[in-house]
Write a protein that binds this DNA or RNA. Structure first.
Length: 799
RNA sequence: GGGCGAUUAGCUCAGUUGGUAGAGCAACUCUUUUACACAGAGAAGGUCACAGGUUCGAGUCCUGUAUCGCCCACCA
């Protein structure tokens, strides 16, 4: 018997070496697997953030997926588990920007786009190895030869291709619509990334002509010239739709128009409201229904525009009390509720408070019909049908209801982001200015005076100089145009001037004439047309756009690769229920349109890992259990089991260190069972199994069969429970105890028979436990006499 | 406001088509020349949230109530 069995199982001395053996065997790669394997089984790893570290949620995901992969590999399938990491666009860029500011006191505008991207690349390269090694520590049998990164060259190509195809099918369009604008991160945010947070504010009731209107946001009220009420509201039946009323408002007399619309809740407040279409989705829709004017009141930075009169140029936060004070003086405040509790929209990706803005952005049309297989369908329909036709099933199944509910409420998906790190939109513009970004116009003399520049040549030199210092490559972005005494400057240019302290918001808002957006000649494609003067859209794509391609971009799409033919659709997509909509639904959308197929056949949703009290693990609560600490202390096998047992699909897992410790004991139990059996087989050499000992094997097989059924139903929790019960309470406590007298008895034939039966039962147990506890089982396997190949490719001991 | 879950031993959770309540952990008693004290043997622990109903029979099916959780929407 090997020396090591005289001591308790030592995971630290074992796990590293075992993983190395697996990797060296090449068996993680389906092309190297022994025997003839026809049936494929594939999973793509939901790619963790490249700059992140492993947390318990990842650990749970890895445990489940590795169990499924190892189980199917042992069942003789051609198994592929594709590793990858995600660029996590916004999160990563913010992180690098933070570092930049902390170490060099610079913003991204100081260093410029190209330089920032270089810094991000360096940062991600450096941290990539951390997460990749942590994935290995869990024992994950990922095929590293197929490792992918969302921002690598092939994936970039796939994203470009997808965009172009969807654009050509009319499913991607550019439109001016109200979007969720994050003034802190200066980018749009998709509907799904918004998180509502409760907040207490003052709620003001204002006298608005004969009406009383309420608001928590007086600073948006400058543009309000429509007063809306329900058509059936008897209190206001004397007022007619379209009727005009003169009244006194914040900055003097205005004329308001009565609008009757059913969107108004008669029960709320006075049943009358004014609308701010440019900064509220509901108001925007009312305005569109009635063809009303839509006026922007607040700019991208939260600064009030000239429409605010004397308040123009102020930040909304500062302006609010001043506006309230003015209304108070004018006697227009009826009353104020100090403690009004309401929800405000925030950017869940660490951003600020969402300020709806009307912006020109790129969208995916989910309700637009296109031709497919001789009929007209919409993306929404396709997403719905994938489940209705049972091409995809979700475990646990009640999530299917939630999925349908989400689809039904789905609006067009805003896919453009104003951050720099990400897949850049493959669209090119050509105007005399180089793009059709937003521009602001000024009177020529005001600007030349402000910057101390006397003529156009001086301005040109000034710009060129600025250009060099700021590192911008494309001169066209920085320059504006002068014509008819008006200077037109791009937002990007203005931002640079602001950072240099040459202009400030106050001045801009007082001197601007208007804003414009020029139509440009447009080309959609990865590369610009051959002639010069084309300028690429500065925006990048929503990170979920590229994530949506993940099941097939990782397999080489758009090329017709062998991998794509063999492994797509993937067998199972396993992820947390928290990204069902972000990711799962979008993969169904993308795969449906681009491949006319589903991305996976089965969705398995695991729960979230919480602490022992059921709270989310967070830094602020200080209740984070680090999977690597746990692996260090108790071994990866124990960590895996602790995340599987008691975790029914979709249920949250309450994890405590005690649980992990408990499963370390189980690893040791198996270790000692082996020691006992090796001992026995040395004392009583393995012989022919007599009929009276056959039951030991039969019973073992039956337990494994039961576990197999559970795994097939994705009840890994029950499967491991079955095996645990059998091994500990039945095999160790009863069968081994009963065997002792037989092994030491006078009947040598019986002793050999029993010893043989136990040895065989042990091999079955080891094989059955291997997907769950790969390290300890593989280590024991290597010490059993007569075993040549690795346990990971041994045949599964049940049908 | 709409939707989806949950409520079973001190804690965490199983409980397949209805047939006398299960596991792990913790706690209790005993056991150490025993494969394993990271152990074994034993005992204890439950009005299955509550109230009705269907049934020969309900933790399981139906109705309602309460509490907790999550998702979606959102009121100016």
């Amino acid at each position: 018997m090997p020396e090591k069995f005289t001591k308790p199982y030592d995971h630290k001395a074992t796990e590293g070496a075992i993983y190395q053996k697996w990797e060296e065997s090449g068996y993680f790669n389906p092309d190297n697997l022994p025997g003839e394997r026809k049936e494929p089984f594939s999973i793509v790893l939901p790619p963790p953030n490249v700059t992140g570290t492993l947390h318990m949620g990842h650990a749970a995901m890895l445990a489940v997926e590795d169990i499924l992969i190892r189980f199917e590999r042992m069942r003789g399938k051609k198994t592929l588990w594709i590793p990858g990491t995600d660029s996590a666009a916004i999160a990563t860029q913010s992180k690098v920007e933070d570092i930049l500011y902390k170490t060099e006191k610079k913003t991204r505008h100081d260093v410029g786009r190209e330089d920032l991207l270089k810094r991000i690349d360096a940062f991600t390269d450096e941290s990539k190895s951390t997460i990749v090694n942590q994935l290995r520590r869990m024992g994950s049998s990922l095929d590293w030869s197929r490792y992918t990164y969302t921002m690598d060259e092939k994936r970039y190509k796939a994203v470009m291709e997808a965009f172009v195809r969807m654009y050509n099918a009319g499913l991607i369009y550019r439109g001016n619509r109200i979007v969720n604008w994050d003034p802190k991160l200066q980018t749009t945010v998709s509907d799904d990334e918004i998180e509502y947070k409760e907040q207490t504010d003052s709620f003001y009731h204002f006298q608005y002509g004969p009406f009383v209107i309420g608001t928590v946001r007086p600073e948006t009220k400058f543009g309000d010239k429509y007063v809306v009420m329900h058509p059936n509201d008897a209190r206001y039946k004397e007022y007619a739709h379209g009727q005009q009323i003169d009244l006194e408002w914040i900055n003097g007399p205005i004329t308001a128009t009565i609008i009757k619309d059913e969107a108004v809740d008669m029960e709320f407040g006075s049943g009358v409201m004014t609308i701010t279409p440019a900064h509220s989705l509901v108001d925007f829709e009312i305005a569109k229904r009635h063809g009303l004017d839509i006026e922007t009141v607040i700019d991208e930075r939260g600064i009030l525009l000239p429409i605010a009169g004397e308040f123009a140029g102020q930040h909304i936060k500062k302006a609010r009390p001043a506006i309230v004070e003015k209304l108070q003086k004018k006697g227009l405040i009826v009353k104020t509720d100090e403690k009004y509790v309401h929800n405000i929209a925030t950017n869940s990706r660490g951003g600020g408070i969402i300020e709806p803005q009307i912006k020109r952005q790129w969208f995916v049309a989910v309700n637009k019909e296109f031709e497919r297989d001789g009929r007209f369908v919409t993306l929404k329909q396709m997403m719905r049908e994938a489940l209705e036709n049972k091409k995809i099933s979700i475990t646990p199944d009640h999530f299917e209801k939630i999925y349908y509910h989400w689809i039904n409420n789905l609006r067009d998906w805003c896919i453009s982001r104003q951050i720099w790190f990400g897949h850049r939109i493959p669209v090119w513009y050509k105007t005399e200015l180089g793009s059709d970004m937003e521009a602001i116009h000024f009177k020529e003399d005001t600007l030349t005076e402000k910057l101390g520049l006397t003529d156009e040549k001086a301005f040109d030199r000034f710009s060129t100089d600025l250009l060099e210092k700021s590192g911008w490559k494309d001169k066209n972005i920085l320059w504006g145009s002068i014509r008819n005494g008006t200077i037109q400057l791009y937002i990007g240019y203005i931002n640079v001037l602001k950072q240099k302290g040459l202009l400030d918001d106050n001045w801009i808002n007082q001197n601007r004439i208007n804003k414009s957006q020029r139509e440009a000649e447009m080309h959609v494609g990865e590369k610009p047309p051959a002639d010069i003067g084309w300028y690429q859209d500065p925006d990048t794509l929503d990170t979920w756009f590229s994530s949506g391609l993940w099941t097939f971009s990782t397999l080489g799409w758009p090329e017709e690769t062998q991998d794509l033919r063999t492994f797509h659709p993937t067998s199972v997509l396993e992820t947390g229920y928290d990204i069902l909509f972000f990711w799962v639904a979008r993969m169904i959308l993308m795969s449906g349109f681009l491949l006319n197929d589903v991305p996976f056949k089965r969705v398995y949703l695991h729960g979230l890992v919480r602490d022992a009290q059921g709270r989310k693990m967070s830094k602020s609560l200080g209740n984070i259990i680090d999977p690597l600490d746990m692996i260090e202390k108790y071994g990866a096998d124990a960590v895996r089991l602790s995340l599987i047992v008691g975790a029914a699909p979709g249920n949250d897992i309450k994890l405590s260190e005690d649980r992990v410790r408990g499963y370390k004991h189980f690893a040791n139990k198996i270790w000692n069972i082996t020691r006992f059996i090796l001992d026995a087989s040395e004392a009583a050499p393995v012989g022919k199994i007599l009929p009276e000992d056959q039951s030991v094997i039969d019973e073992t097989k039956q337990a494994v069969q039961e576990a197999t059924t559970h795994i097939e139903k994705f009840r890994l929790d029950l499967a491991v429970d079955t095996l645990y019960q059998f091994v500990w309470s039945r095999f160790a406590d009863v069968i081994l105890e009963e065997s002792k007298p037989l092994l030491r008895g006078d009947d040598a034939q019986r002793a050999s028979s029993r010893s043989a039966a136990l040895t065989q039962a042990l091999t079955i147990i080891l094989a059955a436990l291997h997907p769950f506890m790969p390290f300890v089982t593989e280590e024991i396997w290597s010490s059993l006499p007569g075993k040549k190949d690795l346990l990971m490719v041994e045949a599964w001991p049940a049908k």
